[in-house]
Simulated scan of single mutants.
Amino acid sequence: MLGAAGTVLAAPAFAQADWPNRAIRLVVPFAPGGSSDVLARLIQPGLGAALGQSVVVENRSGAGSMLGTEYVARSPSDGYTLLLADLPYAIVPALQARMPYDVEKDLVPVVMVGVAPLLIFGHPSLPARNAAEFAALARAQPGHYTYGSGGVGAASHMMGELFQAATGTQLTHVPYRGGGPAIQDLAAGNLNTVFVTVASAAPQLSSGQITGLGVMAAERMPSHPDIPTFREQGIDLIAEHWWGLLAPARTPEAIIQKIAAAMPGVLAATGMAQRLDALAVIPRSDGPEAFGQRIRQDLARYGEIARTRGITAQ
């Protein structure tokens, strides 16, 4: 009897030691072509090589990233299904009265992949050279100036709300079905501003169709040193978009640590720095504890901004 029990108890430990012995699914909760999908496919070969098994990227979009996230939350806790989450992971719960999963209980942080500073972009016709001048204009004419976003609750929407709270301004929010159309309308002169990453606006920025008014980072971006930080302009606001891997709750710690230990090498591989730089993404391989702290901080931050400004999903 004791021998049989010993065999049963040893089975999970053996499974962990043998992990991985088959392909790993990396779920992207967005449609192909977006920043999360691009990053997933950038790290896919290196992560597979480091873990000794193939990594298969699987797009499961829908419900503002909740469909794919719920799928991973309900998957077996065996390390074979991972989620590439990004900033909306911490925003969505602030907007939903009911969630199909618990972001703090049903999934666990594994390792970060990267971060990207968020910026405010303006149309060249805007009579402001930077974010501080734009804030002064907006304070003088409440509700007159617009900002576009990828939809209610999108990161670009919440950045606009953070900006208004930090500057005492009142802007008119114009939601779109995705960040791409918002940037296109900004370039066409149908909007005054948009809050997104450089990766989302690179073609329009390089062509001069839009201008960078400020970056929500502690330091200027090496790729765009001419764009001043918000703090340089007297606006106390720092915000980053982030990406990272999460796993279903109760995934064995040994598996989590193995994945986390592999990520620094994946991000340091030959040619990776140039590819990430092209997306204005800064590699960051913070482990479970630091990544979890970032998620908790953003859950609190965006929960507060949603409550104080009355933002809910529509």
Rank of each mutant, 00 (worst) to 15 (best):
M1N: 10
L2F: 07
A4T: 12
G6F: 10
T7D: 12
A11Y: 13
A13S: 12
Q16G: 04
D18Y: 07
R22M: 02
L26G: 06
L26K: 03
V28E: 02
P29T: 07
F30E: 10
A31T: 14
A31W: 04
P32I: 00
G34V: 08
S35K: 03
V38G: 04
A40R: 00
A50G: 06
G52L: 10
V56S: 14
G62F: 13
L67I: 09
G68E: 06
V72P: 15
R74V: 05
S77P: 11
L87E: 12
V92Q: 13
P93A: 07
D102R: 15
D106P: 13
L107S: 00
M112W: 05
G114T: 01
V115R: 15
L119G: 00
G122V: 08
P124N: 11
A128P: 15
E133S: 00
A135C: 08
A136E: 15
Q141I: 04
P142F: 03
Y145T: 04
S149W: 00
A154T: 12
A155Y: 00
M159Y: 04
M159T: 01
V174H: 12
A188W: 09
P203E: 05
Q209C: 04
G212W: 02
S223E: 14
S223H: 03
P225S: 06
I227M: 11
R231C: 06
I235G: 08
H241T: 11
H241I: 08
T251I: 00
P252K: 08
E253N: 08
A254Q: 11
A254K: 03
A260I: 09
A260T: 05
P264G: 10
P264V: 02
G265N: 08
A269Y: 03
A269N: 02
G271F: 06
M272S: 01
A273W: 04
R275M: 14
L276E: 01
A278T: 11
S285V: 02
A290D: 13
R294N: 05
I295Q: 04
R296V: 00
D298K: 03
L299R: 01
T308H: 12
I311L: 15
